[in-house]
Write a protein that binds this DNA or RNA. Structure first.
Lengths: 229, 229
DNA sequence: AAGTGGTCTAGACCACAAA
DNA sequence: TTGTGGTCTAGACCACTTG
């Protein structure tokens, strides 16, 4: 338990009341000032607790409208996106890396659409395999703005995944999960049968409003991505 | 832009400094009191800004250790988990629902392992299909503690997905993404070929430390789950 | 032992949206 | 118009953890 008077304690009590039915779905809960008086703490403490619950999707808050328990809450789940080496090492396995291809060339149409680049000017295409304890872990397929990583930068020993995180400090982007059948090259690289169902993650990274890289990570069969609810 | 003196403005400036290289990866940034003096705001405002960045994985903070820019940040991505009806309607489509099966019976071993139930006492097994504009959207396969939803509760017109969210106020759990080949029944229900690569989401929900339901949602081919980075 | 972030307080003003 | 959450302030004490 949390010591009383802390925002964690207020949050815990709010959760308890929702579970117990004291604050039923669709209903409005007392305002911050009332709760602060009841709990004997400052309004800022109540605010911190309720804001936390609202960020998780368990409460809906509006100025003047008050705070309500949603009828059908839209919960937020979060998952951690580490670089692949850390992901592998975090599982207690040894990370290996092999660069399979490094060439200049235009991406396929569906990738070009995601990037919104002018005719694919100066695009570097990388294919690499990540290993966990010498077994295939993940196939990295990446298109990269050549001005971001010029030809001098070699991805023989460090993956583009890691190089980018270390050298392009912060950047926004989007990310999506999907399932793909293994094509021929993927099946060979990941040591599975063509057509096998594989989990893939696609990410586009932007800097200053322009896309600088698109990557598709295709994981070996059986891979799961866990998130905390 | 944010008005100066707000925590959003402080966050924006911190991000700018990281991108610009003023605060390089691996380095330590000034402490809260210094930044508050520099920005002409209260320390609590700086704290709010830096805490927000730390929660996103862009900073690492430790008492006495100060605040550092991580060399290989572990970014947090969040995605929203709505009920399936809302998910479909949010895409501008009409949601449909068909209960395919409702029976009592023990779950397969791999599900039983996830649930940690004693011999599957009183388990209800539901299979349902969700439609978007009359086309297959998602196959819901659920095992449910029969004491949570007794036989009186009918899932003919409301999905277990929605019933649970409405009637079991708050509950913790875990969630995972994976890829699965379509088996025979799934291929028939989702109108695809057996063996097609399908995205699936598995969730176990707990209440008071005991699992109350396990669900596997298998989506129609081509489905993507987007998250915000 | 001491430095730094974590949090609480009491008060204030503001922004937004509902009535 | 007015109620409610959003945020800022100045100060204080505490908890952790590093040197």
């Amino acid at each position: 338990m949390d010591r009383p008077g802390t925002w964690q304690a207020v949050r815990a009590e709010a959760l308890r009341r929702m579970r117990a039915g004291d604050w039923p779905p669709g209903g409005r809960i007392p305002d911050e000032a009332e709760l602060a008086a009841e709990f004997g703490c400052a309004r800022a403490t109540v605010n911190r607790a309720l804001r936390d619950l609202a960020e998780a999707g368990l409460l809906e808050r509006r100025r003047k409208g008050g705070t309500r328990v949603p009828v059908t809450p839209i919960r937020k789940a979060t998952f951690e996106i580490a670089i692949i080496r850390q992901d592998v090492e975090g599982r207690g396995q040894r990370h290996g890396y092999r660069l399979l291809e490094d060439a200049l060339g235009p991406p396929p149409p569906e990738v070009l659409a995601a990037l919104d680049w002018p005719e694919g000017a100066g695009m570097r295409h990388l294919t690499a395999l990540h290993l966990a304890d010498d077994r295939p872990f993940c196939l990295e397929h990446r298109w990269l703005d050549a001005t971001v990583a010029p030809a001098e930068v070699s991805f023989d020993t460090i993956s583009a995944n890691e190089w980018l995180v270390r050298n392009i400090p912060y950047s926004g982007g989007n990310i999506a999960f999907l399932a793909r059948p293994a094509d021929g090259p993927a099946a060979r690289a990941l040591d599975c049968a063509p057509g096998d169902a594989l989990l893939a993650v696609e990410r586009t990274t932007f800097r200053d409003g322009a896309a600088i890289t698109f990557v598709r990570l295709t994981y070996a069969p059986g891979h799961r991505v866990d998130a905390t609810l």
